[in-house]
Design a protein around this nucleic acid. Structure first.
Lengths: 115, 115
DNA sequence: ACATTATATCCGGATATCCGAATATGTCAA
DNA sequence: TTGACATATTCGGATATCCGGATATAATGT
């Protein structure tokens, strides 16, 4: 794939509110399983999985299976993506809706949300 | 408009190749009129104008009329947008297709492309 | 006033994207 | 092997986005 096509795919991944919220949670928390993300965003599981697959295809996340759970974390393919990730890590929490998500995630953090 | 909606609008603006090429040219050259952009990208004028209007609505550019010409330049509403603009300014020229655009613009720069 | 040039907007059709219930896959424990 | 749980994928329908020719608007020079 051309560099342009690849970078466009990465930018398109940011053009959806659900995916941005997922990235914000992963940037803030490091590594999370699908059930944590689903519980925090309060969205159908298929919706969360579909968007995570999209982010993975665009190189924004990697996944790691641990038994039944699959943990997602941030990944960056190239310089542009890496730099944008740092900007998002610093700035997304300034958006109230994102800050709410991060707080909601923290409130689950003691007991795993998918018991 | 909520902060989230506004930021989504700004990120959606980056999710189109034509708009990204326009931003790259403006980040590189400072201020350009529609005819310079149209000549450089070799796209229909209506397409260029439509995307510029989109970028203006999202707060990425401002315009300034000088006689018959309308000059566009980069603008940033908030911290996220400002930081992303700096990343784009530094990294977009690393994409070959973008570098080609910037070179093509430079080749026009002596005589105005819209005589 | 009129022609010319630069730019913006309209609009219908093509394409892409998003949603989420249903279903499939994979893992573990009994 | 069967059941239960976590996650992925499928698919049809709704919605959004993009394109560009045609047309409108705006400024200038004659």
């Amino acid at each position: 794939m051309s560099a342009m096509k690849k970078q466009m795919q990465q930018l398109k991944a940011l053009a959806d509110e659900t995916r941005l919220r997922l990235l914000a949670l992963l940037l803030s928390a490091g590594e999370l399983c699908v059930c944590d993300l689903t519980a925090t965003l309060q969205l159908p599981q298929s919706t969360v999985s579909r968007h995570l697959a999209y982010l993975k295809g665009a190189g924004w996340v990697i996944d790691r299976r641990v038994g039944v759970w699959i943990y997602y974390s941030i990944s960056t393919d190239n310089a542009l993506q890496h730099d944008i990730a740092e900007v998002l890590r610093a700035r997304l929490p300034e958006i109230p809706a994102i800050a709410d998500d991060i707080r909601r995630l923290a409130s689950f953090s003691e007991g795993a949300s998918c018991a």
